[in-house]
Design a binder for these strands. Structure first.
Lengths: 205, 205
DNA sequence: CCTAACTGAAGCATCGGTGTCGCAGTTACG
DNA sequence: CGTAACTGCGACACCGATGCTTCAGTTAGG
């Protein structure tokens, strides 16, 4: 139960909701002002069905935010921010987040580093998780930057840039025979190297 | 002549255009979907006047882009990217850009680091100027990163973050008695330090 | 297999933004 | 100082998106 919104829906209704969420992520990632008709089309459903599942456009947006925020929260729990070695946390959290981003492009505009009036602010718990991570990295001597807030901001900015970097960028150092996993790994590596340098740690790993 | 769009306009008409551009920057920075009526209101003009000066919403947006792109182009010329010492160029260009951003908030969404479908792509000449700067920094031994494209991306991302950093952030290290110029200077310093570290140069200046 | 629930299709009212017009009043500039 | 240009105001048609509704057809699940 509670798979999407409530448990009191029939299986196909819940599937419709999921399809709509999925389609909305894809469509809205390309054009945040896209009409619900285009979302419905991408979902392979009638426009009326979208309205039936989500009372208003805003309700759909809210559901999207909730859905994606939950996934990020799950990452934070999964990587054990408070207990696992901080460098391991950094690597794992980055990799999972990156994969999440690629799977759900709209997530991009949902994790703003700077307070933009349009997009919803980053979830407090996510901020807190990152704060813990960077405090621990600092204590461990991996960085010299003592302000975790700045570290967080730089991290999220680099995450975004590493995310949208073209696959053939020289900085990734990928050969022609790299598969998708290699690519993600290369992006994580570039981020970690750049981040540690930026925060005053060892520029070379 | 050609102060705003063409020279064939009367003085007050040109002033109206300027007011509209100014107001559009302010209003659209807060809400990119704001109606032209709100822009007109912020400009202290009638909505019809906006339509008189700019045939369509798109035309207004285009004029905004042109206006701001021109300012950035002017910066590149002013700092002598090709001849002045690269570190001086970096400092000066950053400071001027920051001031420009604060004066024209909408500029934020007009200089995307990553290709976002909504915002217009960064002007080729701006990209080229940055490419030159980072190539020269690398040759001068200030960075170890050999890929100027990645350097550019990181720079623009950090510029944005440094721009939107709260004034009371510990990373800026400002006392209570800091004036506006101190603040900008602190932001420039933070960016340069962070950037050089990120690109494999000396983490400390 | 039967019923309740869900969907698709089509239509309709509404709303907000856009673009255009005319006219009266004001302002710039020769 | 006189005229041409510009502005404000109000009105209007238009358009696309939204949200709501109905009804026939399909599907899930007891």
């Amino acid at each position: 139960m509670a798979a999407t919104e409530r448990g009191g829906l029939r299986a196909d209704a819940r599937r419709s909701s999921a399809r709509i969420l999925e389609a909305a992520q894809q469509v809205l990632a390309e054009d945040p002002t896209a009409s619900l008709e285009r979302v419905a089309e991408a979902a392979g459903l009638a426009r009326a069905t979208v309205h039936r599942r989500f009372a208003s456009r805003q309700a759909l947006l809210d559901a999207l935010v909730r859905d994606l925020t939950d996934r990020y929260l799950a990452i934070i729990k999964e990587v054990r921010v408070k207990t696992a070695p901080p460098m391991v946390v950094l690597h794992r959290a980055t990799e999972i987040s990156l994969r999440l981003k690629y799977g759900h492009p709209f997530v991009t505009s949902l994790t703003p580093t700077h307070e933009s009036p349009g997009a919803p602010a980053a979830h407090p718990e996510i901020v807190e998780g990152l704060e813990i991570l960077f405090t621990r990295l600092h204590e461990g001597g991996y960085t010299t930057t003592s302000d975790p807030a700045w570290a967080r901001v730089v991290y999220l900015a680099l995450l975004q840039e590493v995310y949208s970097l073209p696959a053939d960028s020289p900085s990734l150092g990928l050969g022609d025979d790299a598969d998708a996993d290699d690519e993600v790994e290369a992006r994580v590596g570039l981020l970690v190297t750049t981040l540690l340098g930026a925060l005053g740690g060892s520029p070379r790993r």
